[in-house]
Design a protein around this nucleic acid. Structure first.
Lengths: 191, 191
DNA sequence: TACAGTAGAGAACGTTGGTTCTCAGCGCAA
DNA sequence: TTGCGCTGAGAACCAACGTTCTCTACTGTA
């Protein structure tokens, strides 16, 4: 059981690297096997099919995202700071060498139309993030629609950073978020 | 030459429908042929390879997007209205039955890592849109960073609407855009 | 040493996909 | 009418891929 878990981890890590860099369908199971350094038999013992593996990779990415956001907001003291920490997290991520956009958005574009399991996994992740932002907005005492707006900025930043490769994308998102938060809080106080 | 042009149009329209609904790599050339109602020979006479076809489809989408945005802003009188018209255009698009996100973002996620031609086509489209917004922001007399912020909202709206299927996504983007525009104009006046 | 069970490496299998080729049928000039 | 070039339909071809199978080598045990 211990070895099986280790196999799963190794395969997921390898597949994640390859899928993220090249897309899912451009990567054969043989490439995954080579990257994981495992015989095909053990790969298929760990995951019965490529579909299963894709879903497992997305689940792993989901945990990584949650940890990253949580880590970035660790030092934040107020809901406002915790909200803005999301964009700081994005900023760090965008700067990494292998950054190629949001793996969930990429997977959805590639497989969402043909794989219900993938589509669902992506929806779950996006819903969880929206929920996270909504809770912080609620803590802030602002209107729920602020959360939707802040989510749009985060999503847009991810695709824009991936495609254009521009730096300062996260800065723009953060600056916009500040304006929106302040406006929402002011409106809230006024009413 | 006339027939060749018609063939190209038919193939591009057919491929666009299929690629957009299912992703590029999930659609075989045979399916394109069937959808276009053309013999394979004429298909390959019009486009030498699937890669060429993909690029042509993106170019076609680009024109469609430009026309859509231009059409939505036709009745707008001020730069502010023209900027907000972008989100009205998105709103109408999000409501269409076959909506499945931004074809460029989808293509980038699927093929950007392996096809330089696709990656470039996507970058070109996004850059053109950014330019369009920048020009309007300049007309407005606001700071250039406002344009970057408004682009993020539009991009985020497209992916969020596609994945979550929520309605009112474009409304949230538009509302946020109004706040950002007003704040930028106010800041501009103050300085 | 002899043997049973297992694990690794990669061949093999069946399918699919992109691309090319074949061949039958048709319009048309002499 | 006869032959010629072209067109359409789909078979054929080759490569790649997901998945399974085979065979060899090795480990541990009596």
């Amino acid at each position: 059981m211990t070895e099986a878990t280790t196999d799963r981890d190794r395969v997921v890590a390898a597949a994640d690297r390859l899928f993220y860099a090249r897309g899912v369908q451009s990567v054969g199971m043989d490439a995954v096997r080579t990257e994981a350094g495992l015989p095909l038999k053990r790969l298929y013992a760990a995951f019965g099919s490529k579909d299963e593996l894709v879903v497992a990779v997305l689940a792993h990415r989901s945990r990584t995202w949650d940890d990253g956001v949580a880590g970035a907001s660790a030092g934040a003291r107020t809901p406002r700071e915790r909200l803005l920490a999301v964009y700081d997290f994005l900023d760090g991520w965008f700067g990494s060498d292998d950054f190629r956009g949001c793996a969930f958005i990429n997977a959805y574009g590639e497989l969402g139309g043909v794989s219900p399991a993938v589509a669902q996994a992506v929806r779950d992740q996006k819903q969880a993030f929206a929920r996270y932002v909504e809770d912080l907005v609620a803590d802030l005492g602002a209107d729920r629609s602020l959360a939707a707006q802040l989510v749009l900025l985060a999503e847009g930043a991810q695709t824009t950073a991936a495609i254009t490769g521009a730096d300062r994308v996260a800065d723009h998102a953060r600056a916009a978020a500040e304006v929106l938060i302040d406006a929402a809080v002011r409106r809230d106080r006024a009413s």
